[in-house]
Nucleic acid binder design. Sequence first.
DNA 1: CGGAAATTTGAGACGAATCAATAGCTGTGG
DNA 2: CCACAGCTATTGATTCGTCTCAAATTTCCG
Lengths: 239, 239
Amino acid sequence: MADPPPPPFVAAALDRLVALAPLDQDDRRILLGALVRGRQVRPRRDLVVEGRPVAGSMVLIDGWAARVRLLADGRRQFLAFLLPGDLIGVHRQRAPVASATIVTLTHATVATVPHAPADSALGHLYAVDGALAEAYLLAQITRLGRLSAQERISDLLLEFHERLVPTGLVRRGSFDVPLTQEMIADALGLTSVHVNRMLQQARRDGDVLWERGRVTLPDPAALATKLGRNPPRVTAAGC
Amino acid sequence: MADPPPPPFVAAALDRLVALAPLDQDDRRILLGALVRGRQVRPRRDLVVEGRPVAGSMVLIDGWAARVRLLADGRRQFLAFLLPGDLIGVHRQRAPVASATIVTLTHATVATVPHAPADSALGHLYAVDGALAEAYLLAQITRLGRLSAQERISDLLLEFHERLVPTGLVRRGSFDVPLTQEMIADALGLTSVHVNRMLQQARRDGDVLWERGRVTLPDPAALATKLGRNPPRVTAAGC
DNA sequence: CGGAAATTTGAGACGAATCAATAGCTGTGG
DNA sequence: CCACAGCTATTGATTCGTCTCAAATTTCCG
């Protein structure tokens, strides 16, 4: 009667996706069929290159990636981080050209996802993912424009927490963050030296623990209140 | 044979829109029919409110608006500026909720635009507008994260120039910018005092002239080269 | 013309960058 | 299993860019 349980390595991505929009059995089967055909990608590989035509849509199943922009003089800006279950290269316009490079930050698994008409359930899921991704871009702008270094770091970690919860990768406020302090710096418009100092202060304040790639937020809700942060909502229904 | 020329006050918006994607006579007529039904809006009026359901899609025909986010303690961040011909409130997901407030900065004219299927020419135009808007969000992130105050200002003015050219509102490097220095500051993560000082320096450097609401870039191409700036492209075809 | 808003100027304080050096960690090959 | 190379994290001293506060001036608008 019921479908067999999905292989464990796709669970995080699948859980995140189905939380975005309701899917019937057929759609879930289509999605799962795509997910189990993932391919491995090494760290630091470009999944999409700025200025080049976008081949098709993908989903990040495992590992982290980032949208990044490089300036002529070597400065680097991470525009957004991609976590398991995030979609890559979904576009509506014809002959789409990538507006930013997407690079894997860790060993990653990605799979191609099928094109879906806008009025289908899967199409709606893509739309919600796109709207959420945009909402996080807006959050990133606010972080960079109007938050202090201290606030930027806490806010970003809260975002990771918030986005990882639907994947099931958070255990009592703890989750893996496979980023160096330099990557955090390049996302937050800071230097790695300053990120290091601010992280130490956050630890002293009891807001954040970060040991060997694993972050713990002892009280995410309290931290969110302290920052005045509230999660983005993009539809009147769930999510 | 040919259609009558559009009323002059819609020309800027119409020109910008038709430059985004090819439209046949019927589509142009539909678009024009929407544009001539514009309504006037006073400055500082909310067109869309963050967290509230989005009614329908609109186009900004005349005047400027901005996507803005307000922090609990009064800090303000402009996320993006909306110029004549820019679309407002186009969403793909069902029951969309606004991810940011949109407020008029000047006296403005807006019109409702019809919903269009994703595979229609008008739908493609909406898609290209959406992709371009996202590309400008990415540009904003890079500005805030990795450019100096000086560079941010020049880069933003270059963006205005670039976006206004298709509207025909630029005459020999000159165009109206109905923004106060404080608004520029709230967009660029600076204070109005510092914006003032940096603008004076840009004037001394001969890069920018700004008098009584009108900006002149004596040599936009040279300034773009100096900053290493290149305009976003979102489709393999035009634009 | 008058009042409010916007711009301009100055002095000083503060946050974050820079430069530089050390220590820790990770993986690799001998 | 150890030694080494190359990142990554940490610390300190100093500089620089931008903010803050405050006041004067100019511009805009009714």
